[in-house]
């Protein structure tokens, strides 16, 4: 990204905040998400209204998880006379370390994607003195 782009992005973020600005920059809606640490796992919830399960794609690459989903209807945002159309949600989330990636599971209910990422069950034993 050029210096100019970087400055403009900072200004736009100040005015509109991250979510809306990201929508316009990437031409894809950025869904809200929430990562929560539980006793034996991490849970990532992603809010995906206007999405069918069949149009949902979750991919894992190294320590990043990407959620992409096609909307059931085109969503339009108007600013003045300009109208921007959106057909996809997309978000990439950096995962916390030490996740058992083979055990990751996901379900989708009421437009909320819930991804459960178990913590490793075994590890190096530490002796207690």
């Amino acid at each position: 990204m050029s210096d100019f782009s970087s400055i403009i992005e900072k200004q736009m973020n100040y005015v509109f905040g991250n979510t809306l600005f990201d929508d316009f920059i990437h031409k894809e809606l950025v869904p809200l998400s929430h990562l929560k640490e539980r006793h034996a796992s991490w849970t990532l919830e992603v809010d995906l209204p206007l999405v069918d399960k069949k149009n949902l794609e979750v991919t894992l690459a190294e320590n990043h998880l990407t959620v992409k989903a096609k909307l059931t209807k085109t969503y339009c945002i108007s600013r003045g006379s300009a109208v921007t159309e959106f057909d996809y949600f997309k978000k990439t989330v950096k995962l916390p370390g030490g996740i058992n990636t083979k055990q990751i599971s996901a379900n989708f209910k009421n437009g909320i994607l819930k991804i459960t990422m178990p913590k490793p069950a075994d590890g190096k034993k530490i002796s207690v003195k």
Partner: peptide, 15 residues
């Protein structure tokens, strides 16, 4: 409007 309310209010929710 339920789905659209969730979409439109992302920014306010974040703030």
């Amino acid at each position: 409007q339920i789905d659209y309310l969730r979409l439109q209010n992302r920014q306010l929710m974040e703030e």
